[in-house]
Amino acid sequence: MKNSVRISILSAHLIASTALFAAPSAFAQEQPKPNPLAETPDSGTMKRADKEDMVLVLKKMQELGAKPIESRSVEEARTQPSPADAVKAVLKDEGKMVPMPAVKKQDMTYPIEGGTQPVRIYTPENAGPGPLPVIVYYHGGGWVIANIDTYESSALALASKAKAIVVSVEYRHAPEAKFPAAHADSFAAYKWALEKTASFGGDPARVAVAGESAGGNLAANVAIMARDQKVQMPVHMLLVYPVTGTDMNTPSYIANQNAMPLSKGGMGWFVGKVLAKPEDAMNPMLNLTTKADLKGLPPATIITAEIDPLMSDGVMLAEKLKAAGVTTTYMNNEGVTHEFFGMDAVLDDARRAQDFAVNDLTKAFDKK
Rank of each mutant, 00 (worst) to 15 (best):
I145Q: 00
P131S: 13
I307G: 12
L238T: 15
D85Q: 09
D185S: 04
A181I: 02
K60D: 06
V136S: 00
D349K: 14
L238Y: 05
E30L: 09
N126V: 15
M108F: 14
S186L: 08
K67Q: 15
E75R: 07
E195S: 07
A208D: 06
K191Y: 03
M260R: 15
A155N: 05
A26Y: 11
F21L: 11
G296M: 06
Q354P: 07
V169G: 02
L310T: 02
D50N: 04
A49F: 08
T250M: 02
V336A: 00
Y138Q: 05
M100S: 14
D85S: 01
A127S: 13
F356M: 08
L218D: 05
V207C: 09
Y171H: 04
K320E: 13
V222T: 02
V326N: 00
D348P: 10
V243F: 10
M237A: 11
G272I: 13
L58Q: 14
S213N: 10
V169P: 08
F365R: 01
M237Q: 12
A208W: 09
T301F: 01
A353I: 09
Q31A: 11
R227T: 00
M267Y: 07
Y122K: 01
S263E: 11
M331Y: 06
A226Q: 05
E39A: 12
N256A: 09
P81I: 04
E152F: 13
A364R: 03
M225K: 11
S8F: 12
L317N: 03
G65V: 07
D50K: 04
V87K: 05
P204E: 07
T123N: 04
N359V: 09
A193G: 04
D360E: 11
A77D: 03
K273P: 01
F341R: 03
G314R: 02
S73A: 15
S11T: 13
E113I: 05
Q257R: 13
D53V: 09
A164S: 14
E76R: 06
M248E: 10
A350Q: 07
M343F: 10
V336T: 01
W192L: 02
L20V: 01
L158M: 11
S213H: 09
I224W: 06
S82A: 08
T150C: 09
A292W: 03
M282I: 12
P68G: 01
M46C: 09
D50I: 15
A205K: 13
V134C: 02
N249Y: 10
V336P: 00
G266V: 00
V119A: 02
V274A: 01
A66K: 08
G130R: 04
V5N: 15
M237G: 04
M316I: 06
S252I: 00
A184P: 06
Q257W: 10
P284G: 02
F27G: 03
P124Y: 05
Y138M: 03
R206A: 09
H236V: 02
Q106N: 06
A174H: 00
S71D: 14
R227Q: 12
A86N: 10
K51I: 06
V136G: 08
L239F: 00
G141A: 08
